[in-house]
Every structure is written in C-alpha cells, then in structure tokens.
Amino acid sequence: MMRNSHDAPKTLQRPAWWGDKGVCRDQDPDLFFPDDWRRGPGKLDAIAAKRVCGRCPVVEPCLHDALERGETHGVWGGLDPDERLQLKYPAQRDPAQDPGGGEEAGDASQLLQEAVSV
C-alpha cells in the first residue's frame, strides 16, 4: 500500500511504513522523551511509555530501528536508553540481574519482555 509523503506534494507516494501502525502516534511525545528517565516524574513517564509499547503491534521493528540509529534518548521499542545499551553491550549487564550467567544478556526479546511488563 502506498501513501502520501509527509514532505512532498500529495502527488508523490511512498511505501507504507511500520511506524504508521505505532500506538505511540496517538500519545503525547513528551511521554516517550522524559528529561530524566531514571528518577522522579521522568521515571514515571518512562514506565507509562513502556506500557504503551507493551500494547504496540510494531514494538520489535521500533526497537530494531532505534538500535540501528543508535538512539540515546527516549523510550523506543519498549526500552529506555540504559536498556538499549545493555542490548548493544551485553557484557556491561549487571550479573545479579542475569540469572542465565550472562549467556543471554543480549537477548532482545527477553529484555523487551521485562521492560514492557513494568
């Protein structure tokens, strides 16, 4: 299915994009980009954003794109920047949080499941 480009005249078309199906499109963007996702009101926003991601049909492609782009801010694909770093650098993951002995520290689906079940 083709749709109009946002940046071009209505006569130009572009392929459908997975982001068009994102549940976050109907949410306040500030929810996904709190000033401090580690504490206070920002942490509550990050938790709420992850809950939105938990209902999203395109959470996996969202996370994949965020990892490819190296996003360093905001909740993408159900993960905050610290969680995305854990995927990128699994050796940095806290062994106390990894009951599997570190073998699956980089498992995106497990980390994603933990994040969206907050």
Rank of each mutant, 00 (worst) to 15 (best):
L31E: 01
L31W: 05
D35Y: 09
A66T: 07
R38S: 15
V58G: 03
D35F: 02
G42H: 05
C62S: 07
P15T: 07
A66Q: 06
G70P: 03
F33V: 00
D35E: 15
T11Y: 05
W18G: 00
R25Y: 09
P34T: 03
G54T: 14
R14D: 04
F33R: 00
Q27K: 09
R14F: 02
G19D: 08
R39N: 09
C56D: 13
A48E: 14
C56A: 08
A48G: 09
K21M: 13
R69W: 09
D26S: 12
D26R: 10
E71T: 07
H64Y: 12
P15M: 10
P15V: 10
V52Q: 04
A66H: 05
G54Q: 04
Q27A: 11
A66G: 02
G40W: 01
W18C: 04
F32D: 00
L31V: 11
Q27W: 09
V59N: 00
K21T: 10
D36I: 04
P15A: 15
C53H: 06
P34L: 01
Q13D: 04
F32K: 00
D36W: 03
D35I: 07
K10W: 08
D30K: 13
P34S: 01
E68Y: 00
G19Y: 01
G70D: 07
P61M: 06
R25A: 11
L63C: 07
